[in-house]
């Protein structure tokens, strides 16, 4: 299947002046129109990667193409396509919302367009606040203003660096809704986060970065299916003191002081009919172990992520 990359990162490395290597030969393609989540612990290199693409940090080696334009040699063509929402809530405290958004549009060389600014401000529920000074806004509102600034010049690609850090749950939902609407309008979105929940909720594809290396890039659905182990919990009628020897061939554990049996299996093997559930149930029947209830649980992206990061660390 052919995917049209809107950003190509090729063997990108960055070593800071102090000797810290923040990126190690990272290669990545972002597809036009997708929401890509870059997931990783603090200090993994997420912000450095974004900063190099947006021209805020010089790469040590490698290159970045934005819509086919080298982001250093053809920086104008590359940068005018990109909107960046930084992680820190940076702003000039005394400037008014309208002025700062208009300023952003001008910086990117676009002619004045009050109608577009109005549309952007309305879509972010900022229209009523347009005459307010930044200092009078709440943290969530400031974050929205930063998004409005990034959208003021009609970018094709939007970078959101930790868009919901320090934002309350309700506002986070709103923010996700805004991001979805943007994607529906054709904007490619790359967001970094260390909230797995956020990637799980939003992303089409997920990249995991750790120690400056991109350890994995995968469709979210595939990722969750491939790496998803499942658990079957059986709530027993009579508690067991130990797992009977006859059940030894199954991956079982006792839980709830012998009142529950937990069976772990790999969800990806379901298709091959070897989940082992049928055999387990038959063996239980043979042993005369009855159960009153059962439930299964698929591991969340968070568990997948933690196990992945641990695995790589070993």
């Amino acid at each position: 299947m052919h995917h049209d990359p809107v950003i190509s990162v090729e063997r990108l490395s960055k070593t800071y002046a102090g000797g810290f290597q923040a990126l190690k030969e990272v290669s990545l393609e972002i597809r036009r129109g997708e929401i890509f989540a870059l997931l990783g612990p603090n200090g993994a290199g997420k912000t450095t990667l974004i900063s190099v693409i947006c021209g805020l940090v010089n790469a040590t080696s490698g290159r970045v193409l934005v819509d086919g334009h080298d982001n250093v040699r053809e920086f104008r063509a590359a940068r005018e396509r990109i909107g960046l929402v930084p992680q820190e809530l940076t702003n000039d405290a005394f400037i008014r919302v309208w002025d700062t958004v208009a300023f952003s549009r001008g910086l990117f060389g676009k002619p004045k367009d009050p109608d577009h600014l109005e549309k952007v401000l309305r879509s972010l529920s900022l229209w009523e606040k347009r005459h307010n000074r930044m200092i009078t806004l709440s943290g969530g509102m400031k974050r929205r203003v930063l998004i409005a600034k990034a959208l003021a010049h009609e970018p094709e690609i939007l970078f959101l660096d930790e868009p919901t850090a320090g934002v309350d749950v309700e506002l986070r939902r709103d923010m996700w809704e805004v991001v979805r609407q943007l994607r529906d309008s054709g904007v490619t979105i790359i967001l970094t986060t260390h909230y797995i929940e956020e990637a799980e909720e939003m992303a089409d594809r997920i990249g995991v970065i750790r120690g400056g290396e991109l350890v994995l890039v995968e469709e979210k659905r595939t990722l969750m299916r491939q790496l998803g182990s499942k658990e079957l919990t059986l709530h027993l009628r009579e508690p067991l003191e130990a797992i009977p020897a006859a059940l030894g061939r199954h991956a079982l554990a006792l839980a709830e002081e012998g009142h529950a049996l937990v069976y772990s299996y790999d969800a990806s093997e379901e298709d091959e009919e070897s989940s082992g559930i049928a055999e387990l149930l038959a063996d239980l029947e043979a042993e005369g172990i009855g159960f009153k209830d059962l439930n299964t649980r698929q591991s969340s992206l968070e568990e997948i992520f933690v196990s992945l990061v641990k695995e790589k660390a070993q």
Binding site: C54, L56, R79, E80, L84, P86
Partner: peptide
């Protein structure tokens, strides 16, 4: 950041 990421020389 905004000035440095803008398409300005």
């Amino acid at each position: 950041y905004e000035v440095l990421s803008a398409p300005m020389s």
